[in-house]
C-alpha cells in the first residue's frame, strides 16, 4: 500500500500570510460598531410599529447582525482568509439558519389559542 519517503513529516500547511488591514480600516469599522451600538440604544426607546406589529426586536436583530458581520469580516480577518475558512464560516451561519427555519415551522404554525 505504501512506499516510504525519507523526508521529515509534513507540517500543516498554515496559510501564514495574514493580510493585516490598515489602521484606518480598523478605526472605520470600530466607528461603525459604535454607531451601531448608538442606533440600538436609540431604537430601543422608540415605539416602532407597522400595521400594529412592533418592529423593535427585528430592528435590534438586524443591527446586531450587521455588527457581527463586520467583526467577523474585518476583526477576525475572514474577508482576507482562504476559501476553506470562508466556507467554514458560511457553514456555521447556514446551520444557524437550519435551527431558526425548522424551529419556525413550529412557531409559525402552532395553534396558540
Amino acid at each position: 500500500m505504501t512506499a516510504h519517503q525519507q523526508t521529515e513529516h509534513q507540517q500543516p500547511h498554515h496559510e501564514s500570510v495574514h493580510h493585516i488591514g490598515s489602521l484606518f480600516t480598523y478605526a472605520l469599522i470600530f466607528g461603525a460598531l459604535l454607531i451601531g451600538t448608538g442606533l440600538t440604544v436609540w431604537a430601543a426607546f422608540q415605539n416602532i410599529e407597522v400595521g400594529g406589529i412592533s418592529l423593535n426586536a427585528p430592528i435590534a436583530l438586524i443591527i446586531a447582525t450587521v455588527k457581527a458581520t463586520l467583526v467577523v469580516l474585518y476583526f477576525m480577518h475572514v474577508k482576507d482568509s482562504s476559501r476553506l475558512t470562508k466556507i467554514t464560516v458560511i457553514s456555521g451561519v447556514f446551520w444557524l439558519g437550519i435551527l431558526l427555519t425548522l424551529t419556525m415551522t413550529d412557531f409559525l404554525t402552532r395553534a396558540w389559542h
Binding site: 505504501t2 512506499a3 516510504h4 519517503q5 525519507q6 521529515e8 513529516h9
Partner: peptide
C-alpha cells in the same frame, strides 16, 4: 490488516513512523 497504522511498530514510536509513508493505492 491493511492501513497505515499497521505498518508501524506496535506500540508505535513517539512520532508514529520512522519515515514518512507515501500512499500508492
Amino acid at each position: 490488516s491493511t492501513g497505515l497504522e499497521w505498518e508501524t511498530s506496535s506500540p508505535p514510536p513517539s512520532h508514529n513512523f520512522h519515515e514518512t509513508p507515501v500512499v500508492t493505492s
